[in-house]
């Protein structure tokens, strides 16, 4: 086979492999597995909420976009649409109860619903931020 044809074939093959790798591992890469992800920080619900309240800018820099494991008294469980939200009520403000709200991963929703309100729980989740009333977390998993 002509040398140049061989080189062209090798380049085409390398390009195809690169495209597949790019599609699978970059363009189509999966979302993080928040259940397995190690927590960046571990603290109580009250500590996290107080930090956002007292120094919002620093708290946003430190915790927004991080996986945080919090412990505290489970105040309420809300179910709306296909969401189950664990609520830690830690204050009362202009818009009613305020605290930490964690939308649970699908496979942790039943487990949370079977947890009595008032129980001390440990939940790990991804912090999306503070909206002037609550610290909001997503992809929650009930650790204990």
């Amino acid at each position: 086979m002509n040398k140049w044809i061989k080189i062209m074939l090798i380049l085409v093959a390398m390009g195809a492999v690169g495209a597949v790798i790019g599609y699978v591992f970059v363009y189509n890469k999966s979302h993080p597995d928040f259940e397995k992800k190690k927590a960046d920080f571990t603290l109580t619900a009250e500590e996290l909420f107080k930090f956002y309240r007292s120094d919002q800018a620093s708290a946003e820099l430190k915790y927004n976009g991080k996986v945080v494991e919090i412990s505290g008294v489970l105040s309420e469980i809300e179910s709306i649409y296909d969401l189950t939200i664990a609520v830690f009520v830690l204050d009362k403000g202009l818009f009613g109860k305020e605290g930490i709200r964690i939308s649970m991963l699908e496979n942790h929703q039943e487990k949370l619903k079977n947890t009595p309100q008032g129980a001390v729980v440990i939940i790990k989740g991804f912090v999306t931020g503070y909206n002037e009333t609550d610290v909001v977390m997503e992809h929650g998993s009930l650790i204990n």
Binding site: K29, H31, N64, G65, I85, S103, V127, Y130, V136
Partner: peptide, 28 residues
């Protein structure tokens, strides 16, 4: 998880949205 409130007397209407709370189909 979008916060919103309305006052029926004054008509005041507010929203607050956390941008990191948007969930996309693709992680990228």
């Amino acid at each position: 998880q979008v916060n919103s409130a309305i006052d029926l007397n004054s008509g005041d209407f507010v929203f607050r949205v956390l941008m990191k709370g948007f969930q996309f189909e693709k992680a990228l």
